[in-house]
């Protein structure tokens, strides 16, 4: 398979939430999401309950995929930053570590300059966390670690989902 399964552990999850929590304050943002390039929501901080986070994650990934396709057409590797300006709210979308998408929603209490500046710093921290995460899951996979929750499920468990 071309992509290994993305696995998230408690330790890294907390580290990630610390970084984006800090970014939320420093950038004066309304809400921040981290989304996998395949459209799965990884985490969110701020006023997340105001939004349909699942849809937001899927559309963001679709957006990044479409602009990535455009980039390739003109000979670019990818467009690593997208900015959408609305009347009140704006979206700053950037690719972190080539793998995850950082979405920052902000209004007129912040500015594009501030968001860009803060995102740059946080992106480096996030990249490191995700690199470690990848290494960790590769190592666990090599060891054949038994904490994989699906290793011991039975056919009955699966059937029960559909009953």
């Amino acid at each position: 398979m071309s992509n290994p399964t993305l696995v998230m552990y408690d330790e890294e999850f907390q580290e990630i939430n610390e970084v984006i929590g800090r970014l939320l304050k420093e950038a004066n943002a309304t809400v921040i999401f981290l989304v996998d390039k395949n459209g799965q929501l990884i985490s969110g901080v701020g006023e997340t309950e105001r939004f349909d986070t699942t849809s937001l994650a899927s559309l963001t990934a679709g957006n990044i995929a479409a602009t990535g396709g455009l980039a390739k057409l003109i000979g670019e590797k990818e467009f690593s930053i997208l900015f959408h300006e609305g009347e009140k709210d704006n979206l700053h979308i950037s690719i972190v570590g080539g793998r995850v998408i950082l979405v920052v929603l902000f209004d007129n209490r912040s500015s594009l300059g501030l968001v860009r500046l803060r995102v740059k710093k946080s992106s480096e921290e996030l990249s490191t966390i995700f690199e470690n995460l990848m290494k960790k899951s590769e190592e666990r996979e090599k060891r054949g670690s038994s904490d994989f929750p699906f290793a011991e499920i039975t056919d009955d468990d699966i059937d029960n989902l559909f009953s």
Binding site: M1, N3, P4, T5, L6, V7, M8, Y9, D10, F13, Q14, D36, N38, G39, Q40, I42, D147, F148, P149, F150
Partner: peptide, 15 residues
Amino acid sequence: MSFINYASREINCKI
């Protein structure tokens, strides 16, 4: 590529 999240105890798959 599925996404397994031990922190929120979720498994996400794409069809």
